[in-house]
Computed example of a mutant assay.
Amino acid sequence: MNRRNLFIAICTITLGIAALAMSQTYFEDNFDDPKESEKKWVALFGEWEFKADEYHQLQNTPNCMSVVADEFWDDEWNDYTFEMRGSKTSGAEGFLIMFRCQGLMQARGQALEDPPPRMEKLKPSLEYWWNLGGWGNSRSQVESWGGKAGANSAHTIDEKDWYNIKIVNTSDSYTVILNDEEVAEVADDTEGGVGRIGLATWSTVAKYDDVVVYGPDGPSLPVDARSKLATTWAHLKSVK
């Protein structure tokens, strides 16, 4: 490698490292360590269980919810992307993907468990959920208590299939994406976009995996030993 190519390679690596340093992962859980996952989630209603490296909700009843614990959420986060995978096992509907949640969640006829202490004290109460396969698995929509609903679509949820679900939340809008296709963007500056994330079901047994929440600069990615960046570093170190 001549000096010019070496200089270009070093600059490319430096820029790549800078991009990694700027990226941020706020929260993640792939459920491969049940003891660690237990610290991260607070179940408000339903029968939630960590098994097979997934988060299962086993009770076929309305309004089953689990939210991120206080220790793993910053109440000032209002510009984040929330991704996960979901699979419906059985039941009448699909998934309820919660975001922008603060204060007391709506019980809707259920005796909810104690919420995270800090979350309970936040005012006003606010709750958003992307209802995928709602209304008897006939359509989908973002619903909200205290905010702005929208993103109506004809999407339904099939049993056993895995779905890639993404919500891009900002201070003045939210965008919902299913299987890498944008469904809708909704202008909404309610409470400046603050509020934590959660997982839920309604009259459905389902499971979730690969939950990650990251900031506007993207997720923090480790330099894997097999990555191109690591390989290039190894090559440069061998150049005399």
Results as ranks from 00 to 15, higher is better:
S220E: 11
G133F: 03
G46H: 01
D209F: 13
Y26M: 12
A184H: 11
E38H: 07
D224T: 15
E47F: 14
F27G: 06
S66K: 04
T231P: 12
Q57K: 10
Q106W: 14
T190G: 09
A9Q: 06
G198T: 06
S153W: 03
V212P: 11
S144N: 00
V213S: 09
A19E: 11
N2E: 02
L178M: 09
G150I: 13
M105T: 12
T175E: 04
A107V: 10
M65V: 13
E120G: 11
I97D: 02
D114S: 10
G134D: 03
A225D: 14
D217I: 08
K240Q: 13
S203H: 10
A234G: 11
D74Y: 03
S144G: 02
V194P: 01
T170R: 15
T14N: 06
W77P: 03
G193M: 05
N2G: 14
K35E: 12
G94V: 04
E113P: 00
E93M: 08
L132Y: 11
T175W: 06
E181V: 13
S227C: 08
V67C: 01
T201P: 14
F95D: 00
W41C: 02
S125Y: 00
A19M: 13
I165A: 09
W77S: 05
D210V: 06
E191N: 09
S37Y: 10
G16V: 03
E93D: 15
P115G: 01
I10L: 09
N137D: 07
L6P: 07
G215Q: 00
M1S: 09
L132T: 01
R196N: 04
V183K: 03
V213N: 04
I13V: 11
S125R: 07
I10S: 04
D79I: 12
Q141G: 06
L96H: 13
F82L: 10
D172M: 08
N131E: 13
P124Q: 02
Q24A: 09
N169Q: 08
A111N: 15
R85H: 14
T12G: 12
A19P: 00
L199M: 11
I177N: 05
Q24S: 12
I177K: 07
W41K: 05
I97A: 07
G218A: 14
